[in-house]
Amino acid sequence: METLAAIPWILRHGGEAYAKLGTPKSTGTRLFSISGHVNKPGVYEVELGMPLMTFINDHAGGVTTGKKLKAVIPGGSSVPILTAEECRDVALDFESMAEKGTMLGSGAIIVMAEGTCIVRSLMVLTRFYSHESCGQCTPCREGTPWLYRLIKSFEDGTASEKDLDLVEYVCTAMMGNTICPLADAAVMPTRSYIKKFRDEFVEHLKHGGCPYPAWPLA
């Protein structure tokens, strides 16, 4: 649909004019659907190469009033998460995202402000993948619900220290071993969440559950 929508403009102005938009490698525009803790969530068409923070602040109205940015999922829930720090100098194009070890993916940007529980956010994501798994092949059918229960145990306060390694162990058994990429889509955010926000998982362990208030968050 996104491609089709670009065609009238390209016909009217010519391919060259379209190619001039964006960066030399990521040409043209993309539709970004931004949600989460921003003042003006919605779908925006912007030139590729626009700095992420410019997009959040100038187009999406900035992070929810009074909140600091905590993290951003830049391309749909299956891509590795970016910390606020990483967001500072990243642009909305394929290369910049790849440099940060993540992807532009579907262009569904999820913004999380301070006060968001990263563990709970991952729990919601893994629950989604567990629910979405079709059950056709083993690693995904058995792995996604296991991941969900493991992450949930951090929230519930039933996790133990070795469960962080266990999450990685399950991820290894799933990653790249399935028919379709749904298992990978569950593994990529999980690994990045734990890598970048390990402290928060440890904090959950120490606290014996989630230190954040109950729903709704932030």
Partner: peptide, 14 residues
């Protein structure tokens, strides 16, 4: 071997 063992363990979880 690692992948096979992983798949087998997953298969046996339930």
């Amino acid at each position: 071997k690692e992948a096979t063992r992983g798949v087998l363990e997953l298969m046996l979880t339930n």
